[in-house]
Design a binder for these strands. Structure first.
Length: 642
RNA sequence: GCGCCCGUAGCUCAGUUGGAUAGAGCGUCUGGCUACGAACCAGAAGGUCGGCUGUUCGAGUCAGCCCGGGCGCACCA
């Protein structure tokens, strides 16, 4: 509602400026410094001042005089050095909120692909992976809330070095056969992904002390490529099992996917050779004949030397396959995967996985018009190579629509390492934070963190709702824990390094997920208590006429609260434009704050005046809906009680 | 050496793309549970926005140069 008026005000000024001055400008709408200045501020006069060579105040006055009436706007005035402050018609505004339901219209002609999570299937997920998934999943929810068609891909590198290292560990260090590994996977006392976490660290450190053992890696990689032998069988076993673990971990966070494109299919279906042909034909890469890159196919432009895409032994580097994959996402490769169902989510949605044999599913993926790759900022160079590949092939518009949705890493504070019993070098102890490392086995496992959070939430729930069944308490605790975790991961903007601190993440007070959940629970409680007292929820539309709404909204307090609650769309739009899920989190917190304030200050059920009571109930219900919707976009559930 | 990111209250972070008197949470101090359960609310203290120059009506925001921290820059992924 607020957002639609913002757009109307903006376009009214834009048109007027166009007609009057012949200048086309995008008219920004800002929030006034103080709430008593009005609801919107238009700084357009400042933008025009330079071109018109006139004082901003004078232009502002002309604009206010000339722009004419705008629906929903009660008054406009010039303020400060040339601001135009806009005051809304409170009665009409609330009337619109009460009656008009503005469902977001579907956006036609766009299909957005978001790739996120992408964890190497060789060990348990850690907290850095959770940040990736939380960001990706929330951005997906944001785009869907805005009406976009979105496809979520989770790329599985099941033939890479990391898998090979764990396989080598099983085979050479543990001396385990495929049957032995199967037995391990079936053993309920073993967390297989945790086992691999340790094994990966063990193998990596063994390589360090015994460089000759690196031969195991190349032997394993060759076996995986040929698809034959025990090592290859082990690789399939391990990768598939770990993928399932990752999916289960992510499901705890309410993160779901549409399709799992796998590197094994990219190899078997020869995506690379199709891309290679294109790259050569269109001269996006060249064959180097001299220097240290002699014998390689090189992509020029990005650096002095260019980037090697095909090694002198004829094998392709990872980034080359990534270019092929990116082409496929846009439907530009001329090849396609086959698919089979991998699992079915609780709501009946099917998660598909790629396969190399023809399948009669008729399923179609890819063919996106825009692609977001959620990958940490350390890989920005390689993402630049991928985009340069598209450009080199002449796909300018697709290159422009390839977005590296980058974010900074999650690191651990030295204090956190101490809490978790992670030994640190003298040097590391002095740092502000320490990078997590799968290779060193240094990090916080995702499931451990969630378990710790649930335990803590359970203590709180049990102390407040000891009468509830254990199962119910656990469910509530779990929703609170996940709410806390998702909010924690989302409250930081993307390019801020999260120095993970366990105690901070475990907080359920202040700017946290549970704070938002608590506000929504309180709103629901009021409505529930009303019914428990034998009263029905009023029919707001018939009981509240425009005069009544305007009367109640003479209270500045109520008006500011209603205003805050009505800005969800506006906040979402800004957050999506900025590509910052953190902005949605911030808004959710402000919304909860406004409601808690309202809740504390005004008795609702006990209000004697009928009109006021109905109005307060309507406000409560409106807050409730906005809180639930915003929390939903963040992937945060609202428990039945707290 | 080159490239990218960061530096804002004691701590952790926002800051609507250059706008009005720089905000929030935590922590500290003070006050509030016989209201719809306090995982809450109210109030106070706390700032040379790393530094210096510049761009202009206006700079936390843009440019240049420094200082400090992080991450990249493979025929690894």
């Amino acid at each position: 509602m607020f957002h639609s008026i913002e757009k109307q005000v903006s376009s009214a000024f834009r048109e007027h400026i166009q007609v009057r001055y012949g200048i086309d400008v995008a008219v920004a709408i800002e929030q006034p410094r103080q709430s008593d200045f009005g609801e919107m501020a238009v700084p357009a006069a400042f933008q025009l001042a330079k071109q018109l060579r006139q004082a901003p105040r004078k232009i502002a006055a002309e604009l206010v005089d000339g722009v004419g009436p705008i629906p929903g706007v009660a008054a406009m005035e010039v303020a400060g050095n040339g601001y135009i402050n806009v005051r809304l018609d409170r009665g009409a505004f609330s009337e619109g909120l009460l009656r008009g339901q503005s469902a977001m219209a579907a956006v036609e002609g766009e299909k957005i692909i978001v790739e996120h999570t992408n964890i190497n299937p060789n060990k348990a997920a850690h907290i850095g992976h959770l940040r990736n998934a939380a960001l990706g999943d929330t951005y997906v929810r944001m785009l869907r809330a805005l009406g976009y068609r979105v496809e979520v891909q989770n790329y599985i590198d099941n033939t890479g070095v990391q898998v090979a290292d764990v396989v080598a560990g099983f085979h050479y260090l543990d001396g385990k056969s495929p049957a032995g590994v199967k037995a391990l996977m079936a053993d309920p006392s073993v967390r297989f992904d945790y086992y691999c976490w340790d094994l990966y660290a063990k193998t990596s450190s063994y390589y360090k002390d015994h460089p000759e053992a690196l031969e195991w890696r190349s032997r394993t990689l060759h076996a995986m490529e040929s698809g034959e032998g025990e090592l290859s069988e082990l690789a399939h076993l391990v990768a598939d099992a770990i993928v399932e673990k990752h999916l289960a971990t992510m499901l705890r966070m309410d993160v779901e996917y549409d399709v799992l494109p796998r590197e094994s299919e990219i190899l078997h279906l020869e995506f690379w050779s199709a891309a290679f042909t294109l790259l050569k034909e269109r001269k996006a890469i060249y064959f180097e004949t001299e220097g240290k890159q002699a014998g390689c196919w090189v992509m020029p432009g990005l650096s002095e030397e260019g980037k090697v895409i095909v090694r002198s032994d004829g094998t392709v580097v990872y980034t080359g396959k990534d270019i092929a994959y990116q082409l496929w996402k846009f439907g530009l490769l001329g090849k396609d995967f086959f698919y089979r169902p991998f699992q079915t989510y609780a709501d009946g949605r099917v998660l598909w996985v790629t396969t190399d044999g023809p399948a009669e599913s008729g399923q179609q993926f890819g063919h996106g018009t825009r692609v977001y790759n959620v990958i940490d900022s350390r890989q920005s160079y390689l993402q630049d190579v991928v985009v340069a590949g598209l450009r080199g092939l002449g796909y300018q518009s697709q290159a422009d629509r390839s977005v590296h949705f980058s974010y900074e890493m999650v690191a651990l504070t030295p204090r956190c390492c101490a809490d978790l019993g992670i030994p640190l070098s003298e040097e590391d102890r002095k740092r502000t934070y320490v990078e997590v490392s799968g290779r060193k086995g240094l990090g916080v496992k995702a499931d451990d963190l969630m378990d710790t959070l649930i335990d803590k939430a359970l203590e709180e729930v049990a102390s407040r709702h000891g009468e509830a069944s254990a199962e119910e308490q656990r469910q509530v605790a779990s929703q609170i824990a996940i709410g806390a975790l998702r909010y924690f991961l989302l409250k930081f903007t993307r390019n801020s390094v999260i120095a993970f601190d366990l105690q901070e993440a475990l907080s359920f007070e202040g700017e946290t997920g549970p704070y938002v959940q608590y506000a929504a629970v309180r709103a629901r409680n009021i409505l529930r208590k009303l019914e428990e007292r034998g009263e029905a929820l009023p029919d707001f539309a018939s009981e509240l006429n425009p005069e009544a709404l305007a009367r109640q909204l003479q209270s500045e307090d109520f008006w500011q609260m209603l205003l805050a609650a009505s800005k969800a769309d506006s906040a979402l739009e800004r957050a999506a434009t900025a590509g910052e899920p953190a902005h949605v989190a911030k808004y959710a917190f402000q919304l909860a704050q406004a409601f808690n304030n309202f809740y504390h200050q005004y008795p609702i059920i006990h209000e004697e005046n009928r009109e006021k009571k109905v109005f307060l109930l309507w406000m409560t219900d409106f807050f409730r809906r906005q809180l639930e919707r915003t929390a939903g976009i963040l992937g945060i559930r609202i428990p039945t009680y707290m």
